[in-house]
Design a protein around this nucleic acid. Structure first.
Lengths: 206, 206
DNA sequence: CTTATAGTTGACTAACTAGTAAACAATTGC
DNA sequence: GCAATTGTTTACTAGTTAGTCAACTATAAG
């Protein structure tokens, strides 16, 4: 009961859009309100600050938008295909973003996380917990790959962090040089790190 | 002739300090002036904007502070020791920063680059050119390692980007989780990527 | 000592930004 | 229809921020 509205969702979507394209610090509450077509009074009706909105918006971006893709990609029976499939997804997503915004935007969690982790603990916590969720997909893929003998025995935690690191590292580079093409190197980098034998697709996959 | 001053240098040092610790967007010109103990009129005597100061400050940080370390580290005759020596340097630098600021600050070029590459072209250009300079050290190390048969033949550009990506990726993660310890994984990640035989130090190094 | 030059200062403006409050409008259950 | 509730709007304040300017000060060369 009471008046209904999707202003809350519009504010979260606008915040993600603007912050991903520019940065957390460059986007003001007025900017977000303008993009969402919501007056500032309504903003403060839903959120007590930009930081609080950002936490909800990042949570929504992960849970509603990105996690479903992860679920699908990491459901593949062949663990190495989960990983290459994820890299394909990253690449095509960045291509799509570049067409839409004219810019390679990289990973919003990395960009925002790196930008404000020393200032807004709540955002840092949210980014870290999303990072942990991502990590678990990789971890079980590597675990399965070892179990199926697609890759040699290894330090699970270390390899998981490595895969996350190359993905985040290349996404950051891609954003800075405004070029998604370097993401195409991810599969061979990952296979080196996992010590996949030279022609994995021919032997193990398909 | 005329009045002398180190206010220009103090402004650049203050800008690097503050922006590295917080972020580009979180730091105002007033903040920088306060830290440098310089009045705003003098700020504008030397720099026409925060973005212009940032370009000079980043250039100074690279040329005066960090490049000399690279020169020394990458002068080692054994190319793989250059790479591990660089990773040692990164780790000890982050430990030092954590002791000084209570925070793992990561790579300033990555953080600032990722934050404002879509907004301030001049800063993006500077960060990219510093990245290119860094890359050249790695490139010749890999080249030499191949020539000396310490590692197998490989795609030079790809491996160079890979090493940069793992370093940047882990530095970003270290900043977000406020923990420099994950940087200790860099050498073994790099050796996987370069396909160094299992006990490189025993065989090739020392 | 003089003077041109290089640098400094503090007070100022205009614009922006976060945040508030009180009146108003829509929706649903009764 | 009429409450009760939920959401919206406008106009407002107070504080911050970038940027300017004219008067002032220190320095070194001649």
């Amino acid at each position: 009961m009471g008046r209904t509205s999707d202003a809350r969702e519009r504010l979260m979507a606008a915040a993600v859009d603007l912050i991903w394209e520019e940065s957390y610090g460059a986007v003001t509450i007025d900017d977000i309100c303008l993009r969402a077509d919501v007056r500032k009074g309504s903003f403060y009706y839903f959120f007590e600050s930009k930081a609080v909105l950002a936490v909800f918006a990042l949570d929504r971006l992960w849970g509603e938008v990105l996690k479903p893709h992860y679920q699908e990609i990491f459901a593949h029976p062949l663990p190495l295909v989960r990983i290459t499939g994820y890299f394909d997804f990253l690449y095509s997503k960045q291509i799509e973003l570049k067409q839409k915004y004219g810019k390679t935007l990289g990973c919003p969690f990395c960009s925002v996380g790196s930008e404000i982790c020393t200032q807004e603990e709540s955002i840092r916590d949210k980014v870290q917990s999303i990072g942990d969720a991502k990590r678990s997909y990789f971890k079980s893929a590597i675990e399965d790959a070892v179990a199926m003998k697609h890759i040699p025995q290894c330090n699970l935690a270390e390899k998981t962090d490595s895969l996350i690191a190359i993905a985040d590292g290349l996404l950051t580079q891609a954003r800075i040089i405004n070029n998604p093409e370097i993401l195409l190197r991810l599969p061979s980098m990952a296979f080196d790190l996992l010590r996949v034998s030279s022609h994995p697709y021919a032997e193990v996959l398909v």
